[in-house]
């Protein structure tokens, strides 16, 4: 895998336009989804994803296959940029009812879904997104990377540059905290 990653990066650095396009299409999905989870804004997520790829393109030479997989490196660059944006726009963090959700194009929604199903999907997405927004940044990040993006513990540890044990701990606390938040939002009993 290291060889494949290094070869792809080398091709991009040599100006192979098709290799670069393949690179973009491979990682753009994960990046834009991660950015959207953080920002709750589709337009901002799109902008951030563009910025991430521009930054990656300018810094392709800094990729080191020995330090981890290309995916981890890409997501780390993306995550740092998204976090920087998130911190600088903390006050504007949306809690619930993001208008962007109404214009968001859900890639996973089947085209044959009925209007009711589409509405249900959107409401579910909005509900979960609202719950995630109430978590602390570290816990939210751990949940996003593990349960939404499907990264392994080791990959998350590489991306966040923290021990794997810390990753597990954050994921565990994040899940429990999110479950409590959603329960509160549903109007259920608060666990002591």
């Amino acid at each position: 895998m290291q060889g494949v990653d290094a070869k792809l990066v080398q091709s991009c650095m040599e100006g192979d336009a098709r290799a670069w396009e393949s690179f973009i299409r491979t990682y753009s999905g994960r990046l834009i989804n991660m950015a959207y989870r953080y920002t709750n804004s589709y337009s901002v997520a799109e902008e951030l994803t563009q910025d991430v790829f521009l930054k990656i393109y300018q810094n392709l030479s800094s990729f080191r296959p020995s330090a981890g997989s290309l995916q981890s490196w890409v997501m780390r660059v993306g995550r740092n940029l998204v976090i920087d944006h998130y911190r600088s726009h903390k006050k504007e963090k949306n809690v619930a009812g993001s208008e962007e959700l109404e214009v968001m194009e859900l890639g996973a929604a089947p085209k044959t879904a009925s209007p009711f199903e589409s509405l249900y999907l959107r409401e579910k997405a909005e509900f979960l997104q609202s719950g995630l927004a109430q978590l602390s940044p570290e816990l939210k990040e751990a949940i996003l990377l593990r349960d939404l993006e499907g990264f392994a513990y080791q990959e998350i540890a590489e991306m966040l540059e923290i021990p794997e044990g810390t990753v597990k701990s954050r994921i565990n606390r994040g899940r429990i905290e999110l479950a409590k938040v959603l329960r509160r939002m549903k109007g259920g009993q608060v666990r002591a």
Partner: peptide, 22 residues
């Protein structure tokens, strides 16, 4: 969780700003 689709226009913009479209 429903995923956000990648807009094709965004990919084209990135390509134009970097190496250009093949």
């Amino acid at each position: 969780f429903p995923e956000v689709a990648v807009p094709e226009a965004m990919v084209e913009r990135i390509l134009k700003q970097t190496t250009g479209l093949p």
